[in-house]
């Protein structure tokens, strides 16, 4: 009996050491191993169906319980829609003007350097500890580690793990992702946006490292600045909720409410640079 018990202890110790070295080895790799990839592909085929089903059930449930709210929202949307239609006309005129100006100045189109791959979300990753999504496109669609994910509303996060036809996107709300950002109203481009959670565990973000002279104020729009070359410029991140100063570190920081509601998105776009260059921090 005693020898069996010792044997178990030895097995546990050997396994622990193996796992620890496995963690250290696998953290910085570029692509997941074929075993994970295979398991992922198999499980994903079922998981996608489950996720869609549960999502639809929740949506219809929410629709029933919040019927009055939905009605009010509808009214509001109609109002903003008519407003936006007016703006769209204006935009078309401005766009034309802009294009002629650009062609006159021979200005290279910035946004054409990137192409956008649409992907569906088929599950949530991270077991509570990290916030992430499982998406149904991977390396075969040209997605690589550290590419960024966005929706029409704004920035979502970064790809942290890639398989053949699936990948994991970590949300902006984690503290592990940093984005070079720009305050639109003042053009301060030395900000860095990181994830932030308030007391109620609400997923927010924080812009840091702004200079003390910065005129950032509540309601300002934060967009990506494109510095560093990983993120394309001009993707909207969120609006400022509150500003505070840190005299000790000689910087200003502000809490941002992201435009994307991380609990409600169902599909994302992965931004793929057309030039095949090394993506690094």
């Amino acid at each position: 009996m005693k020898s069996v018990k010792n044997k178990l202890a030895v097995v546990i110790i050997i396994l622990s050491v193996t796992f620890l070295s496995l963690i250290g080895y696998s953290v910085n790799r570029e692509k997941m191993s074929f075993v994970e990839n295979g398991v992922g592909i198999t499980v994903n085929s079922v998981q996608g169906i489950f996720y869609d089903g549960f999502y639809k059930i929740r949506d219809s449930f929410k629709f029933i319980t919040n019927f009055s709210k939905v009605k009010a929202e509808n009214e509001e949307l109609r109002k903003t829609n008519s407003e936006l239609q007016g703006k769209a006309l204006e935009y078309d005129a401005l766009k034309q003007k802009n294009e002629t100006m650009r062609s006159m100045l021979n200005f290279a189109e910035v946004k054409n350097q990137y192409k956008y791959i649409g992907a569906d979300i088929i599950g949530i990753s991270g077991n509570n500890f990290l916030d992430g999504f499982i998406i149904n496109k991977g390396q075969s669609a040209g997605i690589k580690k550290r590419m960024i994910a966005m929706t029409g509303e704004g920035l979502v996060g970064q790809v942290t793990s890639v398989g053949n036809n699936w990948a994991i996107v970590q949300c902006l709300s984690n503290e592990n992702i940093a984005v070079a950002a720009l305050v639109e109203s003042t053009n301060d481009n030395n900000g860095i946006v990181k994830g932030y959670k308030d007391e109620n565990n609400k997923l927010l973000a924080e812009i840091q490292r702004l200079s003390l002279e910065s005129g950032i104020k509540k309601g300002d729009v934060i967009v990506t600045s494109g510095l560093g070359g990983i993120y394309p410029a001009g993707i909207r991140i969120g609006s400022v909720l509150s500003v505070h100063e840190d005299k000790g570190e000689v910087m200003k920081s502000a809490i941002i409410e992201p435009y994307v509601d991380f609990t409600k998105i169902q599909e994302v776009f992965i931004v793929v640079p057309k030039e095949d260059r090394e993506i690094k921090y």
Partner: peptide, 20 residues
């Protein structure tokens, strides 16, 4: 191992903690 497939790039974190 199953949890680790969907965790993050580091493989083995859940394997170690679940086993213990």
């Amino acid at each position: 191992a199953l949890q680790d497939v969907y965790f993050l790039n580091g493989f083995g974190i859940n394997m170690l903690s679940n086993m213990l």
